[in-house]
Simulated assay, not measured.
Amino acid sequence: MNEQPVALLIIDMQRGMSDPAIGERNNPDAETNIQRLLAKWRETGWPVVHVRHISRTPGSPFWPGQPGAEFQPALAPLVNEHVVEKNVPCAFTQTGLERWLHVRGIKRLVIVGVSTSNSVEATVRTSGNLGFDTQVVADATFTFAKQDHAGVYRSADEVHAMSLANLEGEYARILYVEHVLNEVALTHD
């Protein structure tokens, strides 16, 4: 096993994120790709961190106790996997995640989940700024269409691509599932 543990950080894969009312999204294979990575992490025994957004806004699908706040069943944490609850987009803000990682000697993070342009981007920026070797798996993340600041409609693919471009190099490396799985296999041969 590799001397340096690599944590898989799964962001906001909750039931509310699969609600069609949220709007047009990209990467319909994201959940399947996350499941593939999760299975490999469990097989290798590397640490898995599940991040869950808990809203402070009553009526939100992510309000405590609402079905939307629950993890998607196929991606639910096992009892030995760490769960981080956050109230803002960044998984490091007021959660103890940084300390949890440092105590375990984890310096490298592979980040997947939703949404690329919100919680993933916020978490990755902080991760990079804190000095973690951060990787984002482009085909294991997704986001939603939205209007830009000038009022121009941007498809989910466009928003996703721009978020990844914002992160590439300065905060993280952008990889794809096959690359990550091959890299994990090489460290365990």
Rank of each mutant, 00 (worst) to 15 (best):
E70K: 15
L109V: 10
L37P: 08
G59K: 03
D133W: 08
A140R: 00
G45D: 14
A161K: 02
H53M: 05
V83R: 02
N80P: 10
F132N: 04
E121N: 13
G45V: 12
P64N: 10
E170V: 00
N166M: 02
K40C: 13
A150C: 10
W41K: 09
V159H: 03
L109M: 10
E98H: 09
G68N: 02
R104N: 08
S163F: 11
V114T: 10
A138G: 09
R42N: 14
V120W: 09
H149W: 01
P89N: 15
H102Q: 07
Y153F: 07
A165G: 07
A165N: 04
R99H: 14
W41E: 15
P64K: 05
V114L: 09
A161W: 06
A165T: 14
N80A: 13
G96N: 14
Q94E: 15
S163C: 11
P58I: 02
F142G: 00
E168A: 12
D148Y: 01
A138I: 03
E43N: 09
G128D: 02
A172V: 08
V137K: 09
K40M: 09
A76D: 00
G105R: 15
G65C: 06
Q94P: 13
E85R: 04
N80S: 15
F71D: 04
Y171A: 01
